[in-house]
Design a protein around this nucleic acid. Structure first.
Lengths: 315, 315
DNA sequence: TTTTCGACGCAGCAATCGACGCAACTCGTA
DNA sequence: TACGAGTTGCGTCGATTGCTGCGTCGAAAA
């Protein structure tokens, strides 16, 4: 029975692509309804839909659309492996553009992630990130996958004043994935490291990445999150007495050096104060503040603090 | 008791449609008298009439007739509230107390959670919440534990202008725990429900609770998160074509009714628009917007949408 | 006799069609 | 480093298709 014949709009909505894209896929790659009379409406059978699902999944993994279409066209025969070889494709295929997010040379996985983000496909986004985190760890995933894609979205958002919903969805998914890593790694001992955003600073994702990296290394920490006023931060330091404090500032507007000075002025000042993020200006930092250049350096510094504390406790 | 058997003309007059339309609805959509011998006159029972009422109301609200018919055909008892202003009751008085520890009578678990929050003890916070979620489910945990504690912290924060770091830490932990529930329950099918905060609205926790409850029920959704401008929300709706949209507003300042009007004005408007949260004023909502009073009602409405759509996809 | 039945057809409207073009990303080349 | 060629997703435009409510007609039911 042809009772379940979906219209073009219904299929587009289900896949998360535009109706025009479906038409383009049909005439460019031959990925259309099996029975279609030119001029008449397209009616997609479940088999046609399955083929399109493959197309969407492969492009979501970063495969070039032309090649993904080649796989999808011979759908019932052989499904390509889930995690296909990244560099396995022939050099005749070029990557194109379309309405996507610039990821530069970050690789096909990043491209697939960007595509999924544009489609607001949170399931694919979450799965992609989780796979990468499990395979490569927090630091590599952050530097090689998450930061490029997030930067691409941010750039595009700044340029076109759109894409806000994409940015939010992506942030949520990244945050969830990082939190999942943190939860999967039980930490030992009391938290001696305090993570906090600067006052009015809304971007906490890099700090969450650091938190996940710390958890991955078995270091326990305390995470305060975004938009922490100086008074609240000082209060938290007084209350918990951390050995190291990481203060994140994403933009220059939130990077008031007085916040760092306030940290150094508490009764029992932390051993180490890290000013992290691109907001801080190196020439205006108070003495005694360290400014890590990237996630890896911040992580190694924090781990060093933990080790030195262990050492002193043992000796 | 077939005491009330209405003829076709009587039903047509009562509904305000032509008699021929009733016949058309019968043979095109199967919306007719439950017992009808071809060639003989149609006799409509009250149950049949109720089904037709739903059909008429939905089409009157702009729903596509074929889809409205699918909804009406399998209308069990879960008909959505017909009118927005069914009672102007001001959603009861919430847990009143809250002078010392604003947890009120939420129970010892809530008191322990509040204490852990004051200590910035994220480990205990996370474990407490996770246990409660596993034991009682999302809805009960939200209403009985999380909402009271969060409300207490918020009240206290508003009163003393302190406790910001506690509030942030608690929010993060709750968010993580809810996300963990969502990840633990794989959902099937494409997401047809869109969750979003109103413009400038920063509180997304209740929406995340709804998301977790949906996941717990096996309903897939799309979560945009906090601070979604109207343009971005409309863009997302156009792109993904959801069947239901939930727009959360926590305070009156973020509850501009024009945002709801914008949702209803998109080319293919959602079947159901929910204005959730205490920000909305019942008397200023556009027609066709439903306002759930609590998490449970929002959940049941969303589930009803899912069921109706499943039916239509299968039929 | 009055009302309804099934069948057929028609006009309005939303969705879709094919064609075309634009903007943006990648990559090879100079 | 800059630039042109190759790709690709999707917006736009005028025309077409298909759904929908309802009027009409001869026959049958009440």
């Amino acid at each position: 029975m042809a009772d379940e014949a979906l219209s073009a709009g219904a299929v587009a909505r289900r896949l998360g692509v535009a109706v025009t894209t479906l038409r383009t896929w049909h005439q460019r790659y031959g990925l259309g309804p099996s029975e279609h009379v030119p001029g008449h409406h397209r009616r997609y059978t479940p088999a046609d839909l399955a083929r399109l699902e493959i197309m969407r999944r492969l492009t979501g993994e970063g495969v070039a659309p032309a090649e993904a279409a080649r796989w999808a066209r011979q759908a019932p025969a052989v499904l390509p492996p889930d995690r296909l070889g990244l560099k396995a494709r022939t050099s005749t295929v070029r990557d194109g553009g379309g309405t996507t997010i610039p990821v530069g040379r970050a690789g096909p996985v990043a491209r697939g992630l960007a595509r999924a983000a544009m489609r607001l496909d949170s399931v694919t986004i979450g799965r992609t990130i989780a796979d990468a985190l499990a395979a490569d760890g927090v630091v590599a995933t952050w530097e090689g996958l998450l930061r490029p894609v997030l930067a691409g979205i941010g750039e595009r958002h700044a340029a076109t004043a759109g894409l806000i919903e994409v940015e939010h969805l992506m942030s949520r998914c990244v945050s969830e994935a990082l939190a999942s890593v943190a939860r999967a790694h039980p930490t030992t001992g009391p938290p001696r490291i305090l993570l906090s955003c600067a006052d009015e600073e809304q971007h906490s994702l890099p700090l969450e990445a650091l938190a996940a990296a710390l958890a991955e290394s078995g270091v326990s920490y305390r995470m305060l999150g975004a938009r922490v006023p100086v008074a609240a931060l000082v209060e938290a330091i007084n209350r918990t007495g951390p050995a190291a404090v990481v203060l994140w500032s994403h933009t220059r507007a939130t990077a008031g050096p007085h916040q760092l000075s306030a940290l150094l002025a508490v009764p029992r000042r932390p051993l180490l104060v890290l000013a992290a993020g691109p907001g801080w200006r190196a020439d205006s930092l108070p003495a005694g503040v360290v400014r890590p250049v990237d996630l890896a350096e911040a992580l190694s510094l924090a781990v060093a603090v933990r080790d030195s504390l262990d050492q002193s406790a043992a000796g």
